[in-house]
């Protein structure tokens, strides 16, 4: 068995004295692990840092085997990311989220979204908005997508500013006014392209929205909570000058 794909490193674990087990998010083969021989050596260690994009060749005798990766660098971002607090917390948080997906299950859109976020980590507020959208997309990939296209009560497509915590559907300003204290806020940046950095309040509403549904649908059934890295990432983004 053999395939070649692009992969974003999510984590590396030492194996024996010189090898490493590397976890990558690939474009066509989903989240995949493999053994990199010599992965603990100084030549390969810089390549196997989370956030780097590699060309990986996977080989194994049988499909169910762990298999061996041979790797080649495409885009080594980790060195630049690890000096910024929000970027490094984002890496940790995204890795934790991706581990909710089953191994070897292809999710090309998730790979593209992850690559896009990592490209924008120099702009904290834009990256944060992309991560909120990523969390929504991940919920959808897990089978718990929210319906934010039209109002659950009136069917209108305009002025959607709330989300029902019960149904996960959007609610318009007019229809939701009576229950505003019980509804989650729907930030405007989830409705279209993210051209300008959202305000800190919008980001808070976005993270509250996705955090609520991630906890309810994806984490609590597994006996888990939202990762500490997520809270640290949000705090670091709020501290960053661009979010002010």
């Amino acid at each position: 068995m053999e395939w070649t794909d692009d992969g974003i490193v999510l984590g590396t674990r030492r194996h024996g004295e010189s090898s490493a087990i590397v976890e990558v998010m690939t474009r066509d083969h989903g989240r995949h692990l493999g053994l990199v021989r010599g992965g603990s050596a100084s030549r390969l260690r810089p390549l196997l840092q989370p956030g780097n994009v590699l060309r990986v060749v996977w080989r194994a005798r049988l499909d169910e085997h762990l298999g061996n990766f041979t790797v080649d660098a495409i885009n080594l971002r980790a060195g630049g990311l690890m000096i910024q607090a929000h970027a490094i917390y984002a890496l940790t948080h995204l890795g934790t989220l991706l581990r909710l997906l089953p191994e070897r299950d292809p999710h090309e859109s998730v790979f593209s979204a992850l690559d896009d976020i990592l490209d924008h980590l120099d702009a904290p507020a834009i990256a944060a908005a992309l991560i909120v959208r990523f969390e929504l997309d991940l919920l959808s990939e897990l089978g718990f997508g929210l319906d934010l296209a039209s109002c659950a009560a009136t069917g209108t497509l305009d002025d959607l500013i709330y989300v029902s915590p019960k149904s996960g559907r959007a609610v318009s300003r007019e229809a939701g006014e009576a229950w505003r204290d019980k509804l989650l806020q729907l930030p405007a940046f989830l409705g279209g392209e993210i051209a300008t950095p959202p305000s800190p309040a919008e980001l808070e509403h976005g993270f509250a929205l996705t955090g609520y549904f991630l906890a309810r649908h994806a984490l609590e059934p597994r006996g888990e909570n939202l990762a500490d890295a997520r809270a640290h990432f949000i705090a670091a983004v709020m501290r960053a000058p661009a979010a002010a």
Partner: peptide, 15 residues
């Protein structure tokens, strides 16, 4: 260490 794990720890401790 100048690894993502090492620097995550450094940022966490700083916080």
């Amino acid at each position: 260490n100048a690894t993502v794990d090492g620097q995550t720890t450094a940022h966490y401790i700083t916080d």
